[in-house]
Design a protein around this nucleic acid. Structure first.
Lengths: 189, 189
DNA sequence: ATTGCTTTTTGCCATATGGCAAATGGTTTC
DNA sequence: GAAACCATTTGCCATATGGCAAAAAGCAAT
C-alpha cells in the first residue's frame, strides 16, 4: 500500500488525512501465474495497482491470432477505461505472467475518493496521460526498426522482465516468431 | 465551427448558452501545405480542432531517421498534453500534408471554458480516452502483420487519405520503404 | 536417475523486405 | 513545349524473417 501512496505522491500532493482515506478504500488481490486480472467481454468494475509481478495484455486479431500488446510490471496503475467511461467492457485479456499482487479499488470506492479529494481526478489524469504517451511511444518505435533493434530496445526498457517472461510472449510483443527471436538472441551473444 | 460543436455534442450535452460561450472563445487558423502546426521543442499553448485537411505527426529516432507516427484527418481534436499537463513542449512535429483549416483555442480561453462549463473536462476526457485507445490499437496492429496486410488495413481505415498523402509518408507510417510499398501496390492490383 | 512436460534452439528452405540506383511518370514554371 | 523538379516504379541482389519439424535443454514430480 505504501508503494501505491508513494506512486500517487509523484503526481500530486495529499495530506495525511487524504492518504488515510485512500488507504482505507483499498483491498489487496493476489493472482497466481496464468490467472486473469480481466478477460475480454467481462465487465470491469475496479482499478488496480500492481505491487508485485508482471501482467501481459493481449487480444485476438480477426484472424484468431493471439497478439501481445504490452506488459505491465511493478508499480503501475491499471485504469484503462473504467475511471473515465463508466463500466468498462474490455476487448483485451490481462493475464498474470508470474504470481502477482495488486492493490484494488472497487469502482464505488474509487468514486468516493474522487469525490472527496479535490485533486484526485487531476492526479489520475496526469497518470493516464503519461501512460498513454509511453505506450504509444513504445509501440511506435516497434514498427520501422528491425527485429534485433526492437529486442535490444526491449531489454533496455524492461531489463527486469526478460527472465520472467517466456520467450514466446516477448516474440509476440515484438511482432516476430519465437524461432526468429531465438536466433536473434544467438547472434547478440 | 459548427462541426466542432457537433463533434463535442457526441460526447456530452451543452445548452445553447454554453455553445455560444465555446464559439466565442474560438478562432480560425489556416495552414498551408507543409506548414507546421507545432514543432518539437517549441511550447504549445493552444488546442486545435481540424476542420479541413490532413496533418501528419512525426518524430526523429535516435538514429536521426524521420518516423511518421500517425495521421490526423478532418474532425479530430488535437490536444495531446496541453489540456492536462500545463504548458506542453512536444517532441514531435505536426505538419500539414495539405492545406488545412483549424478551429483554435488559446490555453487561456480553453481554461475559461473548462471553468465555466461543469461537464467540459469530463467531455474532454472521454475524447482523449477514445483517441488514445484508437491510436494504440492502430499501432498495435501494425506490428505483427506483414506489410501487405498493414497497407490494406490502412486503406480500409483511411480511405480518404491515400490520394492526399505522398507514398513515402504512408510507407514511413507502415514501417517499410517507399519502394517496398510501391511493389506491394503493384501486387495488389 | 527416470519420466513427462514445457520452453528454447536449430536446420532447411521459401518468401518478404531492404538498399541502391536508374528509369519512368507527373506537375509546375517559365 | 521545354526545363526543372517532384513522386513513383522498377531491376538487381543482399539480408531478414517466416514456416515447419526435429532436436536439445530446462524443469518438476516421482
Amino acid at each position: 500500500m505504501e508503494r501505491f501512496i508513494e506512486y500517487i505522491l509523484q503526481f500530486g500532493n495529499l495530506n495525511q488525512q487524504q492518504i488515510d482515506l485512500v488507504s482505507s478504500k483499498a483491498t489487496v488481490l493476489a493472482l497466481g501465474k496464468d490467472d486473469y486480472y480481466w478477460e475480454a467481454g467481462k465487465m470491469v468494475r475496479r482499478i488496480g495497482f500492481l505491487t508485485a509481478g508482471v501482467l501481459r495484455v493481449y487480444y485476438y486479431t480477426n484472424k484468431g491470432e493471439e497478439n501481445t500488446r504490452y506488459f505491465i510490471d511493478e508499480n503501475h496503475l491499471i485504469l484503462d477505461g473504467p475511471a473515465f467511461e463508466g463500466n468498462y467492457v474490455p476487448s483485451e485479456y490481462l493475464q498474470a505472467m508470474t504470481d502477482c499482487e495488486l492493490v484494488i479499488f472497487s469502482k464505488k470506492n474509487w468514486n468516493e475518493i474522487s469525490e472527496t479529494i479535490v485533486d484526485w481526478d487531476s492526479i489520475v489524469h496526469k497518470i493516464t496521460a503519461k501512460h498513454h504517451r509511453e505506450k504509444l511511444e513504445r509501440r511506435s518505435n516497434l514498427v520501422s526498426q528491425d527485429a534485433t533493434t526492437r529486442y535490444l530496445d526491449f531489454i533496455e526498457k524492461f531489463p527486469t522482465l526478460i527472465n520472467r517472461i517466456p520467450l514466446s510472449y516477448i516474440a509476440s510483443y515484438l511482432g516476430i516468431t519465437q524461432s526468429s527471436l531465438s536466433r536473434i538472441r544467438k547472434n547478440i551473444r
